[in-house]
C-alpha cells in the first residue's frame, strides 16, 4: 500500500513539475504566448538597472547586439533555442524557436518579457543532420493545430524551462552576482591515518 502511495505521489509530483514549466507562460492581450515578470530592486536607480540589463543582453547572446527600445529605459534582444521531440532513444531536434526579450527599468523596479515565439521545424538532411526547413515559420500559438497537442505541449514545456533559466540569469546580472562557475571543493581523504 505504501509503495502505491509513494509511486502515486512521485507521478503526481513529476506531472506537476512538468506542467509547471509550461504554466510559467501566459497569454498577452493579443492572445500570444508571453513570459512576463515584474521585479522589485530597492535602492537601485532606473539607469543602474538599465546598465545591468544591457550587460545581461550583451552576454546572453553575444551574436546579437541589444537595441534600445522606443520607450525610455527599454532594450530588446533576440535569440533562438532548439526544442526536441520524441523521447528516450528517438529524441531529436524537432525545430528551433526564435524569441525576443524586452526589458524595461525604472527606479527600484524592472520588468521583462520573452515573447514573439516563432517555430521553425527541422528535417533530416542528406548528411543525417537535423536542419531548419527554409521558409517555414509557425507562431507558437499555432503549433498545436499544425503539429498536434503532444508536440506542442512538449515544446511549451521546454520553452517554459528556457524562460525560467533566462530569468534566473537576468536576476544574476541585476543583482550583480559573480557569474564565475561554482568550483566544488575537491573531496580529499587521508590514507595515512587509518
Amino acid at each position: 500500500m505504501m509503495k502505491k502511495i509513494i509511486f502515486g505521489l512521485f507521478c503526481l509530483l513529476y506531472v506537476q513539475m512538468a506542467s509547471a514549466q509550461k504554466d510559467s507562460l501566459a497569454f498577452d492581450e493579443g492572445d500570444n504566448y508571453i513570459y512576463y515578470r515584474v521585479a522589485d530592486k530597492p535602492g537601485l536607480s532606473a539607469d543602474t538597472l538599465y546598465k545591468r540589463a544591457w550587460d545581461f543582453a550583451g552576454t546572453f547572446n553575444p551574436s546579437v547586439k541589444p537595441a534600445k527600445g522606443q520607450a525610455e529605459n527599454t532594450l530588446n534582444t533576440s535569440g533562438k533555442m532548439i526544442v526536441y521531440n520524441g523521447s528516450s532513444l528517438v529524441r531529436k531536434e524537432g525545430g528551433q524557436i526564435s524569441y525576443i526579450i524586452n526589458i524595461q527599468t525604472k527606479d527600484q523596479r524592472y520588468r521583462y518579457r520573452i515573447s514573439n515565439f516563432i517555430f521553425t521545424p527541422y528535417q533530416r538532411d542528406r548528411f543525417g543532420n537535423m536542419v531548419p526547413i527554409p521558409g517555414i515559420e509557425v507562431p507558437l500559438e499555432r503549433i498545436a493545430a499544425k503539429y498536434g497537442k503532444k508536440d506542442a505541449d512538449s515544446y511549451l514545456d521546454q520553452i517554459g524551462s528556457f524562460c525560467i533559466n533566462t530569468a534566473a540569469k537576468l536576476k544574476q546580472f541585476i543583482d550583480k552576482q559573480p557569474l564565475a562557475n561554482k568550483t566544488e571543493p575537491v573531496k580529499k581523504i587521508s590514507t595515512q591515518n587509518w
Partner: peptide, 8 residues
C-alpha cells in the same frame, strides 16, 4: 525537474 531546466 532540476535536470530538465538545465537541458539547454
Amino acid at each position: 525537474a532540476a535536470s530538465a531546466q538545465d537541458s539547454t
